[in-house]
Nucleic acid binder design. Structure first.
Length: 646
RNA sequence: GCCCAUGUAGCUCAGCGGUAGAGCACUUCCUUGGUAAGGAAGAGGUCACGGGUUCAAGUCCCGUCAUAGGCUCCA
C-alpha cells in the first residue's frame, strides 16, 4: 500500500500502482470526469500513470493552468497526427502548449501549408479526436529513441533527443502517431471537442535565425463547443477594439507612407488626448518634486559612446548624421538619460540637493526591424514619459515608493484596476556580468522587494532577468478583455553614473556616486494610448476624451441657440461641438454615439425657451432636461472627481 | 531582416483574363424634424508601384514598397 497526500494535508491509503484517475474516482465520479492532469511529488504526471511510492498529489481540471496545459499539449499531438496523415513525409519540430492554445513547428518538405489549408486540417483533427484513441506513454532508452526517430527521418527529433541526458526517454503514442514527449497528456483524444487553428507562421528552428525556418501552425482547443464559441466571440471583440481600427475611426492618429513606416502622426483629436495625459502626469510629478527639463532630438555621437549605448546598439541602429562642413557626427536620440546625466553633472551637487528628479516627455528614435512595427505599440519614433532620479543609496527605497505612488495614481485615474508587477533581480550565480558592487546590488534589490511589500503589491520575482546595470520593477496591466500589457517600468542604474562620472559631495566632505533611477509610468505615450484605446474601446473617461459634449439642434431654427450654449460651455472649459448638419435628430444621435461622445445635448423649441438642454449620456440614453448652468456644473464636477480620484 | 498572407473610391469590401462595382462618407437639392441611419441627384479610381506573359491584365508571373500574423530583436 502507498500513502497519497492531498494539497489540503489529508492522507489516504491506496494500492501500489494506483493512478491519479483512480484516486479521483475514489473521491467522486464527477472529479474523475473532470480531472485531466496531475502532479505527483511535484512532477507532471499523466492521470493514467501508476504511482508506486508514497506521494504528494495534485489533481488538475480544465480550470487549472496545468489542466489546460495538458489539454493543449495533447491537442498539439493531435495536430501532428492530422498533419502526418495529410502530408506524408512531414517532419516534426516541437509542439508545445502556450498561454492561449498550442502550436506545432513542422517541416513539410516541398509542400507549402497555407491559411486556406487550415479548415481541412481541423476537420482531420476532429475526425481523429472522435476515435478517442488512448494516449499511451512508453519509456525507452536514448539509443532506442534515436533509432526510432532516426528510422523515420525525423532529424529534428533526433537532434533534440541527442541533447537530452542519458537515461530513459518517454514517448507518447496515439493512433498512428508517436512523439518524443515528457508529457503529461490526456488519457485519450476524445476529450477534445472543439478545435480552431488560428494562424500559420514561419518560425526558426530552435529560435535561431541562422537555422531553417519551419512552418508553425497555431491553434486552440476546448473540451466544449460552447467554450470555443465564446473564445471566438472574444477574439472578435478584441478585433473591434484594435487601437489601429479605433484610432482611424476616431481620428486619433495615422501613418503616412510618405513620412515613413513606424512614424506616427498624431491627428488633432489624438494630440489633444495625449496632451491631457501629459498635463495630468506633469501635475502629479510636480507634486512629487520633479523638475521638467528639455533636451534636443539629437546628440553628439560621443555622448552615446560614453553612455555605452553606441557600442551595444550603434551598428544595429539609425546611423549617425553628419554636419556638412565640420563632419561632426550626431545620433538621433535613442535615450534621454545621457542628456539628463549631463544636466546633473553641470553643477557641483551636494548630498543636500538629492534626490534630484529630472522629467521630460522626450521623443526618442530607435531603429526597429520592419517586421516588428505594429500600430502605436511598436514604432520608430516615440515619446517616453521619462524621468531620471539621482539619489543617495539610502534614498533608493523611499524613491521607489514614491514612483510606485505615481504609477498607482495613474492606473486609478485611468481605470486599470487589474495590474501585476514583476521584480527582475540579477542571477546570483553569475554576478560578474553585472556592473556595480555586490553591496549596492543587495541594497537595491532589497529596497525594491521591501517597497513592494510595504505597498502590499504582489510582485512576481524573476531572478536573472535584471539588466546588466541594475534591478528593475515592471508593471503589467490587464485590460478589459483580460489581456496583459507591459507599461510602466522603474529601473535602478549603477552604470550611467559610473560612465558619466557623476558625483555629489557627502556630509563627510567626500565625493560619492549617486544612484540613478529610470522610470516611465506610461512607458511611452504611443504605447500607452494604444493600450488605453483597447482597454476602453475608445470610450475614454470624460476628463480625457477629446470632445466631451456635442450639441444637436432639432432643426436649423435652433442652430443659433446651440452655438450660443456651445460658446458658454467652451468658456467653462468643457470641450463642446455643435452638430448643425441638415439631418434628423435620430441621425445625429446615432453618428455621435458612434463617435463615443460622452454627452449629447438635444436642443429644440422647449429648451431654447427655458435656457435648458436635454441631456443624453453615452450608452445610457435620455437623462431628461436641465438648465445649461446645472449641466455645466455637473460636467465640471465629474471631470474634477475623475482627475482627483486618488 | 526571415516565413505565410493581403494591397481595388476617404472608409468597409465585391469583382479574379474581355467597357472598373456596392454600401457608408463627401457635394448639391428637397425635407425642418423630439432621442441610434428621411429622400433624390452628383462627384469621386494609372485597381500600391515597376517589369513581364497575352490580341487583351485589378485579374496570371517576377520584383519593389506598404500592411497584417508569426519568428529573431527590443537601451
Amino acid at each position: 500500500m502507498i500513502n497519497i497526500k492531498f494539497p489540503d494535508g489529508s492522507v489516504r491509503e491506496y494500492a501500489k500502482g494506483t493512478t491519479p484517475l483512480q484516486v479521483a474516482e475514489s473521491i467522486s465520479s464527477r472529479l474523475a470526469q473532470d480531472v485531466i492532469a496531475a502532479s505527483v511529488n511535484g512532477l507532471e504526471w499523466d492521470v493514467t500513470r501508476p504511482i508506486d511510492t508514497d506521494a504528494d498529489i495534485k489533481l488538475f481540471k480544465w480550470d487549472d493552468a496545468e489542466g489546460k496545459h495538458a489539454f493543449w499539449h495533447t491537442s498539439a499531438h493531435l495536430l501532428a497526427e492530422a498533419l502526418q496523415s495529410l502530408y506524408p513525409g512531414i517532419k516534426f519540430g516541437i509542439g508545445p502548449a502556450v498561454e492561449n492554445g498550442f502550436y506545432y513547428d513542422v517541416d513539410p518538405g516541398d509542400a507549402v501549408i497555407r491559411d486556406s489549408d487550415l479548415p481541412k486540417i481541423e476537420a482531420k483533427m476532429m475526425e481523429l479526436a472522435a476515435k478517442k484513441c488512448p494516449v499511451v506513454r512508453q519509456d525507452i532508452t536514448k539509443e532506442d529513441a534515436i533509432k526510432l526517430f532516426g528510422e523515420r527521418g525525423e532529424e529534428y527529433k533526433v537532434e533534440l533527443i541527442s541533447e537530452l541526458e542519458d537515461g530513459t526517454i518517454s514517448t507518447y503514442t496515439q493512433g498512428e502517431f508517436t512523439d518524443l514527449c515528457r508529457g503529461p497528456h490526456l488519457p485519450h483524444t476524445g476529450n477534445i471537442k472543439a478545435i480552431k487553428l488560428t494562424s500559420i507562421a514561419g518560425a526558426y528552428w530552435r529560435g535561431d535565425e541562422k537555422r531553417k525556418q519551419l512552418t508553425r501552425i497555431y491553434g486552440i482547443s476546448f473540451p466544449k463547443k460552447k467554450m470555443l464559441d465564446e473564445y471566438i466571440q472574444m477574439m472578435e471583440e478584441a478585433k473591434k477594439r484594435d487601437h489601429r481600427k479605433i484610432g482611424k475611426e476616431l481620428e486619433l492618429f495615422m501613418f503616412s507612407q510618405a513620412v515613413g513606416q513606424g512614424l506616427p502622426l498624431w491627428l488633432p483629436r489624438g494630440a489633444a488626448l495625449r496632451e491631457r495625459l501629459e498635463m495630468f502626469l506633469k501635475r502629479i510629478q510636480k507634486r512629487f518634486g520633479y523638475q521638467q527639463v528639455m533636451t534636443p532630438h539629437i546628440g553628439a555621437k560621443q555622448l552615446y559612446v560614453t553612455s555605452g549605448h553606441y557600442a551595444k546598439y550603434g551598428k544595429d541602429s539609425f546611423q549617425p548624421i553628419h554636419t556638412p562642413e565640420e563632419n561632426e557626427e550626431f545620433l538621433l536620440k535613442p535615450m534621454n538619460c545621457p542628456h539628463h546625466c549631463e544636466i546633473f553633472a553641470a553643477f557641483p551637487r551636494s548630498y543636500k540637493d538629492l534626490p534630484l528628479r529630472f522629467a521630460e516627455f522626450g521623443t526618442v528614435y530607435r531603429y526597429e526591424q520592419s517586421g516588428e512595427l505594429h500600430g502605436l505599440t511598436r514604432v520608430r519614433g516615440f515619446t517616453q514619459d521619462d524621468a531620471h532620479l539621482f539619489c543617495r543609496p539610502d534614498q533608493l527605497k523611499e524613491e521607489f515608493l514614491k514612483v510606485m505612488d505615481i504609477i498607482f495614481i495613474i492606473f486609478k485615474a485611468l481605470n486599470f484596476e487589474n495590474f501585476e508587477a514583476q521584480i527582475s533581480l540579477r542571477d546570483p550565480s553569475n554576478t560578474e556580468k553585472y556592473i556595480g558592487s555586490d553591496e549596492n546590488w543587495e541594497k537595491a534589490e532589497s529596497a525594491i522587494v521591501e517597497a513592494c511589500q510595504e505597498k502590499g503589491l504582489k510582485a512576481r520575482v524573476e531572478t536573472g532577468e535584471a539588466a546588466f546595470y541594475g534591478p528593475k520593477l515592471d508593471f503589467m496591466v490587464k485590460d478589459a478583455l483580460g489581456r496583459r500589457w507591459q507599461l510602466g517600468t522603474i529601473q535602478v542604474d549603477y552604470n550611467l553614473p559610473e560612465r558619466f562620472n557623476l558625483e555629489y559631495t557627502g556630509a563627510d566632505n567626500q565625493k560619492h556616486r549617486p544612484v540613478m533611477i529610470h522610470r516611465a509610468p506610461f512607458g511611452s505615450m504611443e504605447r500607452f494610448v494604444a493600450v488605453l484605446i483597447e482597454h476602453t474601446a475608445g470610450k475614454f473617461p470624460l476628463w480625457l476624451t477629446p470632445d466631451q459634449v456635442v450639441i444637436m439642434p432639432i432643426s436649423e431654427k435652433f442652430n443659433e441657440y446651440a452655438h450660443q450654449i456651445a460658446n458658454q460651455l467652451n468658456m467653462a472649459d468643457i470641450r463642446t461641438l455643435v452638430d448643425d448638419r441638415n439631418e434628423k435628430i435620430g441621425r445625429k444621435i446615432r453618428d455621435n454615439e458612434m463617435k463615443k461622445i460622452p454627452y449629447l445635448l438635444v436642443v429644440g423649441e422647449k429648451e431654447a425657451e427655458n435656457n435648458q438642454v436635454s441631456v443624453r449620456k453615452q450608452g445610457e440614453g435620455d437623462q431628461g432636461t436641465m438648465s445649461v448652468d446645472d449641466f455645466a456644473a455637473m460636467v465640471t464636477k465629474e471631470v474634477d472627481d475623475q482627475m482627483n480620484a486618488y
